[in-house]
Design a protein around this nucleic acid. Structure first.
Lengths: 232, 232
DNA sequence: TGTACATCAGTGAACGCGCGTTCACTGATGTAC
DNA sequence: TGTACATCAGTGAACGCGCGTTCACTGATGTAC
């Protein structure tokens, strides 16, 4: 019953976790640019070369943090979505959107890490792109379920609007099956606006115009839910 | 006719301009964090302490660059808007939106400077906030002119929706006079989506979904123009 | 169960680097009279 | 127009700092037989 895991291997996992936690804290205090392996080591009471036992270099640590951020956000949104009956699109939509905003406000610097200015000369590996789709998959799933319950559409009722060419319809169809492609632009707009709102709020662009961002966010999400034709 | 300006004063203005130009180039190459007064000096063939004759410290230079970026973008948008007959709201809207995107793509790092992750521990002075409103004033002006041409509304036709409380209605009314306050949420959504789109595009979040961002942008702006009820 | 060897976390010293900022200076430019 | 003084751009040396990364090492842990 005891796992075959050796104490050393367990300790290693723990140390990696600690390094990442300390890094997250430091990023929170001084931003990404201020993250240094030396400081992480210092904070952990280790000598400056110790972290290199766990991460080959600074970029590798950064990649791990970015990946974690995407996954952490993705998991939060999935959890929020799962709390509602799958047929209640509107409740799910609001829950998912609120989860994005809540996570962002709780982890502003990690949010900046993944949705702010890209780190210059840092190239995100494929793995992070994969993790980045967790949120879009949730949103796509909500729309899919909504459309699954609708009476079948007159085929090609709006075929002229099908966005062949400028969208990657194959990918989008995979993320929101059953949603007619002529809805993709609207869907992408809604997705963009969720993050646009959160970024504007977090980065200070609503100062002087929005007094209560909580209320404003609810209103905006309601508008979007209407535009998307979400029911219930 | 010759201005009373002294050669030394002229040279000073020129040097300041050069420092900022070099800084913009360096930011373009290595991001904001990579901007250093020493490197600017080196690039200009000056000794490392020379720039301190012009900027008291790094933050002051950064402030100047941020201010310039807001003003440069603001001027570009104003110019684009002015190219159209003031009664053609729709053309003006598209022109302004395109100008934002075009400027952002031409100056991606300066865009990141003002609309990306805020520089940590850097507090934007009031002056920059002022400059930041140039874009919103143009957008507000377009809506104002649109509503000025509409038949007067039944007073308080939708009074229940007037966003008293959660929006700073006074400021918004000043930026878009004649637009009924129940339209403010829509207006803010449109503004947010312009920048949300541009940020998503620039920061790489449309990889895998949008193939031709030019076309997509036009479609999105069209949708927004419809939602805002822009005519012509 | 016991021994012999391999693995690996953490050490401590060192490398070469670039940074922001200060300061006393020189020599050219500007100003007042 | 000419002189006397004040201003100011740029110099060069110096301060104290932190960084990423490498490397040969030690001693504890893990593995094979």
């Amino acid at each position: 019953m005891a796992t075959t895991t050796t104490p050393r291997a367990e300790a290693r996992i723990l140390q990696i976790e600690t390094i990442k936690e300390v890094s997250r804290r430091l990023i929170g205090e001084k931003g990404v640019a201020g993250l240094s392996l030396r400081e992480v080591a210092r904070e952990m009471g280790l000598v400056s070369s110790a972290p290199y036992r766990y991460f080959a270099n600074r970029d590798e640590l950064l990649t791990a943090l970015i990946l974690d951020a995407y996954n952490d956000l993705g998991a939060a949104v999935e959890r929020a979505d799962a709390r509602h009956s799958s047929s209640n699109s509107r409740a799910r939509w609001h829950a998912a959107a609120r989860a994005v905003r809540k996570w962002a406000k709780q982890h502003p610097h990690e949010y900046g890490l993944i949705y702010g200015t890209p780190v210059p000369n840092y190239e995100a590996p494929l793995l992070t792109i994969e993790a980045a789709t967790r949120v879009t998959r949730v949103l796509g799933g909500i729309l899919s379920d909504e459309w699954a319950r609708r009476p079948a559409r007159a085929a090609n009722s709006a075929a002229g609007n099908t966005p062949r060419g400028f969208l990657m319809v194959e990918n989008l169809s995979e993320q929101m099956p059953r949603v007619p492609p002529d809805q993709f632009v609207k869907a992408l707009m809604a997705w963009t606006l969720i993050f646009g709102f959160v970024s504007f709020e977090l980065f200070g662009h609503y100062v002087g115009t929005v007094r209560n961002a909580n209320v404003m966010f609810e209103r905006v999400m309601n508008e979007l839910a209407d535009d998307l034709g979400l029911s219930q």
